[in-house]
């Protein structure tokens, strides 16, 4: 199909005057099927097609092309043209959610956030779990820099789509932005349940607990860093340094009798060796800077 697209593009570029209806229709079809993003070109050829050859298109394809061209025009910020296409779609389908969504996206592109919000809220009145509308409301608040409002909008989205990992990650980031560590930790707990094998979630969760601080959090953070070390087979610098930093904060004595405690005593030493190995292999020039830090951290964790 890519070869076909090249051929059609050549025809379009070589055309004298208005290109043929057939090549324009084929070009837009190929761009839809191949999901290629070249918004300015799609908007340009779509404009020609809709102006000169409406009658060459079936009723169904006519409106598919309208939608395709409207999104391309918004994407390339051709606002007056986008407005005319979006208006046509809304006149033809006054009750369609897809048409309203385009209306909202037009207001967003034009910087009219208030009216965009009205449109999305209106969609939600008819369909209170509409995915696009709920998501656009988050983006809308974020682009205005209102993190607390974006957090509220994201919570509403996650009430419905609670398995969306990207959304939980974004919510955690937003909580960190406003320094709400407890809620950020809660988001990471959800993420750990959704993907129990993603080591970076363990590290992020431990980082949050370490930042909150306190004896219990240092201990929990240490075990999550340890889990991340296990998952990365000792390759995560963040997790290795994290374990040492936690150990340096944990001062209570452990009983030598049980095996788990013995493992905890050996943990700083094993971690230190792993870090030295990584630095020797990948960043030998940094070794002299790292060695004194490791000695200091190990010294702290050996305190009686």
């Amino acid at each position: 199909m890519e070869g076909e697209l090249e051929e059609v593009e050549r025809q379009l570029r070589g055309a004298k005057g208005v290109p043929s209806a057939e090549s324009l229709i084929r070009y837009l079809r190929l761009m839809r099927d191949l999901h290629i993003r070249d918004s300015p070109t799609v908007a340009r050829y779509g404009n020609i097609l809709l102006r000169h050859y409406r009658s060459h298109l079936s009723e169904e394809e006519l409106w598919t092309v309208h939608e395709q061209v409207a999104i391309a025009a918004l994407d390339s910020h051709a606002l007056p043209f986008a407005a005319s296409v979006v208006r046509a779609i809304n006149r033809r389908f006054p009750d369609s959610v897809r048409a309203k969504r385009l209306q909202g996206m037009y207001f967003e592109a034009a910087g009219d956030y208030g009216r965009a919000e009205d449109v999305y809220r209106d969609i939600l009145v008819g369909d209170n779990t509409n995915e696009t509308a709920l998501k656009r409301l988050v983006a809308l608040q974020r682009s205005q820099g209102d993190t607390p409002a974006a957090i509220d909008a994201m919570k509403k989205y996650l009430d419905v789509f609670s398995n969306d990992k990207d959304a939980w990650e974004e919510l955690a980031d937003m909580y960190l932005e406003v320094l709400n560590y407890r809620q950020a930790a809660f988001c990471m707990e959800e993420l750990l349940m959704l993907s129990p094998h993603n080591s970076s979630f363990y590290v992020r969760y431990a980082d949050i607990l370490y930042t909150i601080g306190g004896p219990t959090n240092y201990k929990t953070a240490r075990s999550y860093y340890s889990k991340a070390i296990e998952l990365t087979m000792g390759g995560s610098l963040r997790a290795l340094f994290g374990v040492l930093a936690c150990c340096a904060h944990i001062t209570e004595k452990v009983s030598l009798q049980d095996a788990r405690s013995r493992a905890q005593i050996e943990l700083p030493e094993v971690t230190t060796q792993a870090l030295l190995r990584i630095y020797k292999q990948h960043a030998p020039d940094k070794l002299p800077f790292v060695e004194p830090i490791l000695a200091k951290l190990a010294g702290q964790s050996e305190r009686p």
Partner: peptide, 8 residues
Amino acid sequence: SLAPALEI
């Protein structure tokens, strides 16, 4: 806003 990377 997280301490570990900054501290290390």
